[in-house]
Amino acid sequence: MNDMRHVERTVRVDTTKITARDVQVFYGDTHAIRNVSVDIPDKTVTAFIGPSGCGKSTFLRCLNRMNDTISVARVEGRIEIDGEDIYDRRVDPVQLRAKVGMVFQKPNPFPKSIYDNVAYGPRIHGLARDRADLDGIVEKALRRAALWAEVKDRLSAAGTGLSGGQQQRLCIARAVATSPEVLLMDEPCSALDPIATDQVENLIHELRENYSVVIVTHSMSQASRVSQKTAYFHLGELVEYGETGQIFTNPQDERTENYITGRIG
């Protein structure tokens, strides 16, 4: 937790990528997200932390409208990306999701080959001109997800045949391959060993150059290592949001303080 190695705390507060205002999410009668308003800047890593069941994944799924696929889920409020309301009737969620990539909490590779897993996104979006181009995209994505060395000799093997941590990195590679502008990562390192975690964290740093990354994590040290901004969720509410350094050293809210000092959750 005190490992604050290579974090740039300076946030270039130039542009806001995502704006959320008074977001409410209901699962049937359950009020899972209450009144969340947040501004997520571009080219930064934002960490969502909070106890289990507090709605981190739910809020993350609002940002690429994955909640649309849950029939009981209802989203209210306003979420803008680059100033455009993503819940506008004219917005096609399919187009939105190509722009806002996602790595899920549980690794979910397709039951296809490793190559096809990574190549799927570029294929459906027509990102590769030819086979060699696609090969290049796949290799680059796998390298960035720190998986290339392990799978380069068996790209045609099944993606589901990898270990849990490898599968998670495969999913990261798959999401990165479509070059989204925003990458949502739901506990991407929960199944990874410290070495792979380190590699993924390096990837996140690298992605920050071009993208805006939102990461959900249960590891406080990871949040402090990789993020510039941190949001603390508690029972569906956004309790505190600010510079990561400030949240971890000088939390304003008692609940945040209790959580990061390990007294709850």
């Binding site: 399919v94 899920f104 799927y120």
Partner: peptide, 16 residues
Amino acid sequence: VPPSIRDAALGLGASK
């Protein structure tokens, strides 16, 4: 078919 497969595809920007 596990729903996570559908989520994975949709999350990549595949149409239904």
